[in-house]
Design a protein around this nucleic acid. Sequence first.
RNA 1: GCGGGUAUAGCUUAAUGGUAAAGCGCCAGCCUUCCAAGCUGGCCACGCGGGUUCGAUUCCCGCUACCCGCUCCA
Length: 591
Amino acid sequence: MSDTKPDPIAQMEKIVSLCKRRGFIYPSSEIYGGCGGVWDYGPLGAELKRNLREAWWRAMTRDREDILGLDACILMNPAIWKASGHVDTFADMMRECSLTNKRVRADHVEAQAGTVMQFTGAKAATGWSISRQITVLMKQGEHIESFRKRVRALIGQNAGAAAGKPEEIELLGEQKTEVVTASVDFHPESGGLLGESRPFNLMLRTYLGPTATEADVTYLRPETAQAIFAQFKNVFDSSRVKVPFGICQIGKAFRNEVTPKNFTFRSREFEQMELEFFIKPDEAVEIISGEVAKWSDGADLSEPQPNWGWEMWHRYWVDQRTKFYQNIGLGDVLEYYWQTPADLAHYARACVDILCEFPFGTEELEGIAARGAFDLTAHQQASTKSQEVFDEDLKNAAAKLTPEQKEALIQKRLAAEQAKVKGEPMPEADVRAWFERLFKGNYVPHVIEPSAGLDRMALAVIAKAFDETVKTDDKGKSETITVLRFHPRVAPIKCGVFPLLKNKPELVAKAREVYALLKPHMNCFYDETASIGRRYARQDEAGTPFGVTIDFDTLGEKPELLNTVTVRERDSNAQHRIQISELLGWLQARL
RNA sequence: GCGGGUAUAGCUUAAUGGUAAAGCGCCAGCCUUCCAAGCUGGCCACGCGGGUUCGAUUCCCGCUACCCGCUCCA
């Protein structure tokens, strides 16, 4: 990487431009003027994405005994989205503040008192201006000058750099209109007039069935996870697994993002890689193991243990996922954000965001949430189909408990319910009913959910790999060299194969032979045009880690070098002389 | 969705009220014994729609996309 911090906007523009030029990522539907918030992967992007997808799939299921794969459809019964809460949280009636454009739920606006003030517009010394009417509530007891200052600040914030300093914004045509005592038409914080109430649906609607009536409405899934929950029982019943175990899935998901931005980072169609890892409730662990392991810094997370509760499992998955990112070359750009109790959704016990440094800022790549039994319980209620599992070890262990020991567990849980920060405590009768099922060996599994975005991962890998250096030759002529320093494991093309010269048929024939040798084992690229240096440079831009060159020594010009080739490394420009018979093994050892 | 900006070849830029220039790249040929060499030739562009005008890439209006803010959080 270069030493100087590049301008982030220019840096992104270069990356977008390279992605298009080299066939990683194109704007969707470009010949028709594009299509907002969707992007297509070209030949190199498709390979890169496939490598990442396969690395994830291998790490999550093939390399493990306790995780199974699933490939569910994008279209599902819309009842799933009601049960999961998406229909409600993704489709509120929203009103938008005319001053700041902030949105509030229409049914959540509290009545306010104050004086309604109007301005005909605003302008700034920078030449910036707006000429639409601005209506703002001056709250009861607010001083007129602090009110004006506040309005200037809000306008300035919304206008961004164009308006210059907020204190230099001039408010035009101020006038008082009316005094209100209990109005729900103003934003609770900014005081800006709220626009019309309108539905704000983040899910993409579609019709399942050719008649396309309202009865046929369903949604393109906004996340892949719900299919895993909906198929939980089928997987459990057909796979001879025991809790703890996981189900993972890779697939497309869709959200009508308000503002798609930052290239592919926030897209309306995107690919998720999600794991739902089902675990016993802590109470079950305690009954079986006599204790629940507590997390402490430096605790051993290498091998799952029977006494792990949700906290240890959560830490374990953060650790596992970190190792995954290290393996694809992103280890040194990661950051972690542990959500505070205030950030967390009411059903979540903990959530860690794994963030990655992009030119446009440090943004989330993956979220790892401990979601309790929320999801399966919600589906159990909505579908009226039991999502419980039976755990024989639990039943046997519970049978050995004394009534006092059982009551102690119940009391401990009741106390925990009372201490909840968010959400209502579970009523005592429900807690007792739940324990009754538990003591018989029945429970709805809890879940740890590592959920990653594949497109974000691909963008992170590209942004991390992007490197530009200025090279000056002997004659003082300098040019900018662009290299994508992908980890060989994810690089779209693994190896370039080049005859040193094109007009020597022996070299070309030998090079085609080497190409044919490697091609069945890895994605290779044969190139005989232009000078050898240019061919290396082309592959550098594509991020190809190795180049193999066939020269006259390969043909035996120096007898001791017969059947050897030059392997050139992208990052160091180092060259190695390798026997053709050993070439495949040499490369495979480095991928 | 709101506010600000941008839109000329694959990429980066230029010029112009009379339909466009260059560099790089790409393709073909010649040449070339290891890091974007050279020569010759070639392909390729005014985002879309309307208006003003004899004539618009240029001026005006709409649309779309992208970038920067507000919101979203895989």
